[in-house]
Design a protein around this nucleic acid. Structure first.
Length: 699
DNA sequence: GCAAGGTC
């Protein structure tokens, strides 16, 4: 085979280099970490005087240490090494089993070498310790390895939530039996996600192939589907948006050099606004009714968790959450930053911030910033911790390692962001001078003026990305009279909701509590891969297929359209953990529910759902097309979307007539033009403008 | 082939 001799040579070299002192013999304790980085930390923590002996099998490292007078071999997984799979086709499918991930998942081939090393090391071990992350998945990762390659009867759990010598040693002095309740809850999580996801995905795919004979990859799941529905709901509101008019009375004032134009009052109708404007022109002045100056402390930011980092990198550099995550993972593997897949905004005491800060000063870019930080704090370095926490990892922070090879542009930016955020979190607050004035015109409204100056930049010197915009207003006194230079009435339109971006959709997932740090960005990308979502610049749009899948789910699998299914899972997993119920009881209940809805789907919905999806996929052409677009016409010659847009236009027209006194065609022309009007709304309006007729004939 | 979850 191509290149095999080279590979073999490297393998031999790897073996021979590490073989001295690496033959552990029999009867050792095998410690299983979740990842190589953690294994190394554990090895270091358990070797009191001597350095742990680093060994390798192929590319996979493991360590030998003597702890408590016994040889401990510390090896590592690489996340899950086992996953659920089935040999059955079709649905419903409830017969699944655990298998090595490298056998069942083509993208997880890297797990094979970890699997093989653990297999080899487990064979000669007498005791097994699950030292994976102290969370539900860590319990499953270690358990599956010990169960498949070792012996659960000779196994223990080490529980530590920080990778520090102290915490690790404490955990190894107080080893506990395997945490069966956590394991059962974790196994149940895997099974529940599998039976829901695989069955409903197959129901969608099979209905398409039933109707068209084609195989198309479609999917649904506890996390991806509510996320799709959220994007659909927003996209629909934007596409159906009918802007409403309002009339603002704007006023220009001048005080010496200071000139300002602002909004005094807003009216629904033009007449009311014109009346107020006329009144104001006659009065010709505003009176200061309040004036206040004060100082404000702007507290430093929390150190980053992954979601905050992704949001900031999107805001500042336009990076997608997945891209930011990939770059952060590279920096982590280079040893430059701590573990990035964390929800924590806290830097615990166990992190030696003083040493990290001192080391950062050796990087020329940060030398002066560190100098400032040490002067400004008197050397007392305490990060401002945020409320969010993570069972297994602290907030993202630099390690203090100096980059050995030059960083790429994106790596440099992300690293810089992390370093500055970390340093800023320990810096003094910024001091702002603020001023606010209210200038009233009796019986009409008032003009608000706000001023802001930064008196002391504090942490903003370091994390300058968050600096507020400065503005000055004149110093006023209550009772002062200010001349009005100009009065105008301007029409304003209400605006649609903000379209989602990848970053804001990930933030939504975080806010409602679905997915994890490691999966949210990936699941958003998956919705693009499936063809449910598409990008238009930074904004997310839902495709025809996305709308069709959302419609099918809402009708036949409503459980998957809401984040409530995650809440339901969480409650039941917690009950398993508390031994109030059992895994089998929870799984049986899920199977019963799924059996019944899947059977009903199979009996009565395959054809219609297949047709619906096939039309969205453009495999089947609709019989009657909409008079405006290529979609199927459902009512009055219009498709579902344009029909709904027409309804919204009717409501909007009544409001426009009342507020602005327009007639039907004027209104439709306006709607066809306004860029804030939804796409479907504009299309319907343009159609009737072209026809020269008003669709609201009943009026 | 399909989930969501870990990590290279």
């Amino acid at each position: 085979m191509r290149g095999s001799s080279k590979v073999m040579a490297r393998r031999r070299l790897g073996r021979s280099r590490s073989s001295a002192g690496c033959t552990a013999g029999h009867g050792y304790v095998l410690v299983i970490a979740e990842k190589p980085k953690a294994a190394r930390k554990i090895a270091e923590a358990l070797s009191n005087s001597t350095r742990p002996k680093l060994c390798r099998l192929g590319k996979v490292p493991y360590w030998l240490v003597s702890w408590n007078g016994r040889l401990h071999v510390i090896a590592s997984a690489a996340g899950h090494l086992f996953g659920l799979t089935t040999d059955e086709r079709g649905f419903p499918v409830f017969s699944y089993y655990w298998a090595p991930l490298w056998r069942i998942d083509g993208s997880a081939s890297y797990t094979k070498r970890f699997f093989e090393v653990l297999e080899k090391l487990a064979g000669r071990a007498t005791v097994f310790i699950n030292a994976c992350d102290y969370d539900i998945e860590g319990s499953v990762i270690g358990y599956m390895i010990i169960k498949s390659l070792g012996d659960v009867k000779r196994a223990y759990r080490a529980k530590f939530s920080a990778l520090t010598r102290q915490d690790i040693q404490r955990a190894f002095r107080r080893l506990e039996p395997l945490d069966w309740d956590m394991i059962e809850a974790g196994l149940a999580r895997h099974e529940l996600d599998w039976i829901w996801g695989v069955n409903v995905s197959r129901a969608l795919m099979d209905s398409v192939s039933r109707v068209t004979g084609r195989r198309v990859v479609l999917s649904a799941g506890r996390v991806q589907s509510p996320t799709l529905i959220e994007a659909v709901t927003r996209d629909k509101e934007i596409n159906l948006f009918v802007p409403l008019p309002s009339f603002a009375v704007n006023v220009t004032i001048a005080l010496g050099d200071y000139k300002h134009t602002g909004r005094l009052a807003v009216y629904e109708t033009r007449q009311d606004a014109l009346k107020a404007a006329e009144k104001l022109r006659r009065a010709r002045f505003l009176k200061v009714v309040s004036y206040r100056e004060w100082r404000e402390r702007l507290l430093p930011p929390y150190p980053f968790n992954l979601g905050d980092l992704q949001a900031e990198a999107a805001r500042l550099f336009g990076y997608s959450p997945m891209f930011t995550q990939r770059v952060a993972e590279q920096l982590y593997l280079e040893g430059l930053i701590s573990y990035p897949r964390t929800n924590s905004q806290k830097i615990p005491e166990s992190v030696d911030v003083a040493t990290i800060v001192r080391n950062l000063a050796r990087i020329s870019e940060y030398h002066n910033l560190v100098g400032y930080l040490l002067r400004a704090t008197g050397g007392i370095l305490r990060p401002r911790n945020g409320p969010k926490d993570d069972p297994a990892h602290p907030a993202i922070h630099p390690t203090g390692e100096v980059p050995s090879t030059p960083l790429t542009g994106a790596q440099k930016r992300i690293y810089d962001l992390i370093v500055r955020r970390f340093l800023a979190s320990m810096a003094p607050p910024a001091i702002l001078a603020r001023a606010h004035a209210r200038l009233a015109a009796t019986g009409i409204g008032s003009l608000e003026l706000s001023g802001l100056r930064i008196l002391d930049h504090g942490w903003l010197r370091i994390y300058y990305f968050a600096a507020p915009k400065e503005s000055q207003i004149p110093r006023l006194r209550v009772g002062d009279i200010v001349d009005v230079k100009r009065v105008s009435v301007r029409i304003a339109y209400s605006g649609p909701p903000e379209p989602y971006t990848k970053a804001s959709l990930v933030k939504w997932m975080e806010r409602v509590g679905i997915g994890t740090e490691a999966t949210r960005a990936r699941i958003v990308e998956l919705l693009f891969e499936r063809g449910y979502l598409a990008s238009r610049g930074k904004r997310i749009e839902v495709t025809e297929l996305g709308y069709a899948v959302a419609w099918v789910l809402a009708r036949y699998f409503p459980q998957l359209t809401s984040v409530e299914l995650t809440r339901y899972f969480e409650e039941h997993l917690e009950a398993i953990r508390a031994r109030k119920t059992s895994r089998s009881a929870v799984i049986d209940e899920a199977k019963r529910l799924l059996s019944s809805i899947l059977a009903e789907f199979k009996k009565g919905a395959m054809e219609s759902v297949g047709m619906e999806l096939a039309k969205a996929l453009n495999i089947i052409k609709p019989r009657n097309t909409c008079i405006i677009c290529q979609r199927e016409a459902t009512e009055a010659g219009l498709c579902r979307f344009h029909q709904e847009a027409l309804q919204r236009l009717l409501q909007g027209y009544m409001e426009w007539r009342r507020r602005a006194g327009v007639d039907c065609l004027e209104f439709l022309q306006k709607m066809a033009q306004l860029s804030s009007a939804g796409r479907w709304v504009r299309e319907v309006a343009a159609y009737f403008v072209k026809q020269g007729k008003c669709p609201f004939s009943a009026l």
